[in-house]
Structures are given as C-alpha cells and as structure tokens.
Design a binder for these strands. Sequence first.
DNA 1: AAAATTGGCTTGTATAATGCAAGTCAATAT
DNA 2: ATATTGACTTGCATTATACAAGCCAATTTT
Lengths: 119, 119
Amino acid sequence: MTNNITRQDFERSFCPVACALDELGDKWTLLIIRDLLLGKKRYQEFLASPERIATNILADRLKKLESAGFVRQQIYQQKPVRCQYILTQKGKDLRPVLQALVTWGKIYYPGSRVLDAVE
Amino acid sequence: MTNNITRQDFERSFCPVACALDELGDKWTLLIIRDLLLGKKRYQEFLASPERIATNILADRLKKLESAGFVRQQIYQQKPVRCQYILTQKGKDLRPVLQALVTWGKIYYPGSRVLDAVE
DNA sequence: AAAATTGGCTTGTATAATGCAAGTCAATAT
DNA sequence: ATATTGACTTGCATTATACAAGCCAATTTT
C-alpha cells in the first residue's frame, strides 16, 4: 500500500448515511450490534435474543461484521477452539446511533423496552 | 377504532431497536428519509439522488412509509394530479438518528459528506 | 397539429437475500 | 456409551432487490 489513509470506494455514493447503510442496512446487523453493546459475546447468546435469528444468517452477519471491522474474534478456549466476538472502536462508536434509535423507538412503539444488559 | 392508543403487535420483539428495524431496516428507506429531511418532496427529486434508486423500489418504499405513518401525501396540483411527500412528526423525529449516523459515518468513511439541503 | 418531454408510476424478469429445518463435527458431561 | 453443547454448514423454498422497459395524462417544443 502506498499510503495508509485508504480511500473508500463509496459503493453507492459519498454520503455517510449511504455508506453506513451499505454495511448496516438490513433487518439483523444492528440487532447484533445492539447485543454486543449489551455485553453479549457468544454465538448462543445472540441466538437466545428474542428476535430468533436463524443460525445461517447469524454466521453470515458475524463474518461480514468482522470483515467490515465492526468486531473481532477472540479465542477464549482451545480444545475445542471457541471464540467470542468483541466490538472494535468502530463498532463501539455506534452506541449513540443505537441510543438515538432507542429514544425514538420508545416513543413510537409504546410498550417497547430495551433488553437488560448482560452481566 | 375503540381507542386511539393503538397497541403495536411487536413483529419480532418488544425491543425498540427491533421494532424500528422492522420498518426501517433495509438499504433504501433511511435514504428516502434523509432526502425528505433535506427538503426533497417529489418523486423525481428522490430519483435524482446519487444512489440511483430504482423506480419500483422507490414507489414501494413511499407506499410503505406512508402506511407506517412516516410520510403523508400532499396533492400540489390537479390536472394531472401530482403529489408530494411530507414527513409526519414520526418521520421528522428521526432527525437525531440520522444525525448520529452522519457523525459516525464521517469518521469511518473518510471523504464522505452529506448532500446539500434543497432550497 | 404532431412530436417530444415530464411526472409518477407499473410490469416483467433475473439475481440475491432471507427463513426454516436439518445435518456436521469436535469435545465434554452423564 | 450416549447425550449434550457450541459453532457452524447445507439444502431448499420464499421473498426482496435490481434493471429495463412500458404506460398514461398533460404540458412543452417544433
């Protein structure tokens, strides 16, 4: 690489909202980020969330989140190798976005409430 | 209707994030909301945005946004009937969500910038 | 007056994403 | 020895998305 400030190729446009939605714009990705922000780390914890994500979709999203730099894998035991998923700074910095969505959602979906944090 | 506080049926879960993503979780819906917040109102204005949404998807999303109460149609001329789309309070209140996404996106997609407001 | 353009869509078809159930595989617990 | 756990993968049906073209009424241009 000739320089370390890599140019984005702006999949659909140069708008930060469009760029964000290229990586986050579906029904599941932000729910996994929500779980991670609440302290969940493992496959079974994500599967246990009330929205009942399918295993193939979860595996796919975790892969995409990792290659997009939102999470990294951390091995927490050998034999058998088991890993957990940890938010990177890019992922953690989505907290204000999720928080704004929660504030809005609690108004427009009366009766809704956030899940309890893990631990 | 027997009362005016309608109960949500919580498509996937009672989480405000999940409820929000049931209505907003795709690659296009929030871009249309962005356009509306920037002052765009008409079909051709949405089509002119740099992401190049397809006409059938735009028509579908405007229909869904209307039935979900994010926008309402306003006829601005008869012969032929032409209408524009106006954000409801529910739609307008998404501004902080979009703003948080822009703040985040400008950091993680260097070189990205928001479109100019209309008018 | 005829032809082209504008605005707001709809239709058809191909490709991709999502959802559901079941299966795999290594290791640990019973 | 058998069952269970954890992290997936595979197969297949359904649904969503993308792209191109077409439609229709009215207005503008030639």
